[in-house]
Design a protein around this nucleic acid. Sequence first.
DNA 1: CCGATATATAAGTAAACACTTATATGAATG
DNA 2: CATTCATATAAGTGTTTACTTATATATCGG
Lengths: 108, 108
Amino acid sequence: MTAAVQLTNVLKTLADPTRRAVFERIAREGEVAATGLVQGSKVSQPAVSQHLRALRDAGLVAERREGRHIHYRVAPKGLGPLIDWLGHYQTFWQERFENLEKLLKESE
Amino acid sequence: MTAAVQLTNVLKTLADPTRRAVFERIAREGEVAATGLVQGSKVSQPAVSQHLRALRDAGLVAERREGRHIHYRVAPKGLGPLIDWLGHYQTFWQERFENLEKLLKESE
DNA sequence: CCGATATATAAGTAAACACTTATATGAATG
DNA sequence: CATTCATATAAGTGTTTACTTATATATCGG
C-alpha cells in the first residue's frame, strides 16, 4: 500500500467525529475493552465494533485479546503517515510542529 | 464553530485524494490561479472549483482576485486545528509510554 | 454441554459525497 | 456592447458511509 493511500485511510478514519471520539477515549484511558467503549457511547455496539475495525485497519489502534474481552490501545505509529505529510508543510506553521515529529520517531 | 468541528472539517477536506492533490499543488507552486489547477487535473473545471471552495471553507487556502483570475495560496493557519489536535497526543505520548520529553531534551 | 457475556458480521437504509453536463455570473478586450 | 475568458452554481447521478436491527461466532463459568 502506497504512502498516499495510507494517509488517505488515516484521514478518512479520523474525520468521522464518532470514530474519532472512540480513538480519543482509547487514548485517554490507555487500554479499554470494547464493552467499556460501548458504554457511554451514543451509538450501538455494532457501530462501535465497526469503528474499531476501521481504526485497526488504518493502523491507529492495536488489540489484545483477554478471554472474552478485547482490549484496545492506541498504536502510536498509526499517526505516522499524518505526521510525515505535515512535515512537508513545516514552513507554513513553523514552531508549532517543532518537536512533534521528533517525538514520534523516538517512540517507534 | 467549535474546535472539534473545525478539526472535522480539516480532516474531511484533506481526506479526499483529489482535493488533497489540489492543496498540495497550491502548496508547491506558492500561488496558482484556478485555471492552472484545472490544467493537469484529472477532473473537470467545476470539480476543481468545488474542491477550492471546500478548501477555502475549511480555512486551508486563501484567495486573491486579480482581474478575471483568482489566485490561491495556502493559508498557514488552516492546519492549526490538526496540529493542535496532534499536539494533544504529544503530551499523551509523553505521559503514557515513555518520558519522551526527557528523551527529547537529552537529545538536544 | 448450557446459559450468559463479549464481539463480529449481515443486511438494509438514509444521508453525504464526488463527480458529471449544462448554464450562469463576472470581468477584460476589441 | 458583444465576445471571450475565468470561475461559480445548478441539477442530476452513482457510490460511499455511518448507522440500525437481527443474527452469528467465540469464550467463559457453572
